[in-house]
């Protein structure tokens, strides 16, 4: 575990905590894409199937359980919480996300480390995670105004990806025969999707103004 990987995991965790805090404190999920949250729940469940077969570390197991539980809790709140569900921007969150699931699974059938159930699902989860933010970005762009917590949520989620890239570069330079073709390629694609958002986030931060995305 290097410092970049730890920073990546912590910003990832922080992003999820920020989202839970926003929903809990404001009893509102306005500005949050339920489709993105459902995709993340699928991502974590299919990637962490190895919880039952491989033990890596207490840290690893703990984080996996936290990611699965928190993503399911967010989806549950947005679907079933009597107050929270009323603020869901249903009419703005119309991204056709089954397309993303299908395309990710098809790609996983073609490109994987090994042709086994667990490995194909692992690759599927990597590809799906790379594009899972799209419904959220589309929702933010449609709603125009972004509240602070939601903006910070997306910012930290993007920071997590950027730190993982630094982590792979570091590992490539320090570990013999280190390669992560599937995760690395997907990670670069995923991080690139945030570029536009980052640009406007930094402008609003610099001007000390509310984050607004152009229509």
């Amino acid at each position: 575990m290097n410092v970049f990987r730890l920073a990546g995991d912590m910003t990832h965790l922080l992003s999820i905590l920020l989202l839970l805090l926003k929903i809990y404190a404001t009893k509102s999920c306005s500005g949050v894409s339920r489709k993105t949250q459902e995709l993340y729940a699928i991502v974590f469940i299919f990637r962490y199937l190895d919880l039952f077969t491989d033990f890596i570390s207490v840290y690893n197991t703990f984080m996996k359980v936290v990611f699965i539980a928190s993503s399911l809790a967010i989806v549950w709140c947005m679907r079933f919480h009597p107050v929270v569900r009323r603020s869901y921007d249903r009419e703005l969150d119309t991204f056709r996300y089954f397309f993303l699931v299908g395309a990710s699974f098809a790609l996983a059938l073609i490109w994987h480390e090994k042709f086994s159930v667990q490995e194909v699902f692992w690759a599927f989860s990597i590809y799906l995670e790379a594009v899972a933010i799209l419904p959220q970005l589309v929702l933010l762009q449609r709603s125009g105004n972004v509240d602070n917590l939601t903006g910070q949520y997306v910012f930290f989620l993007g920071a997590y990806r950027a730190f993982y890239i630094l982590n792979w570069i570091y590992r490539y330079l320090t570990e013999p025969r280190f390669t992560r073709w599937i995760a690395g390629t997907s990670g670069v694609v995923q991080t690139a999707l945030y570029a536009d958002f980052f640009y406007y986030y930094f402008i609003s931060w610099k001007n000390n103004s509310k984050l607004k995305l152009p229509a």
Binding site: D50, M63, E113
Partner: peptide, 10 residues
Amino acid sequence: SDVVAEHDEL
């Protein structure tokens, strides 16, 4: 196996 052991990241 080697392949699975590579998944040490989250």
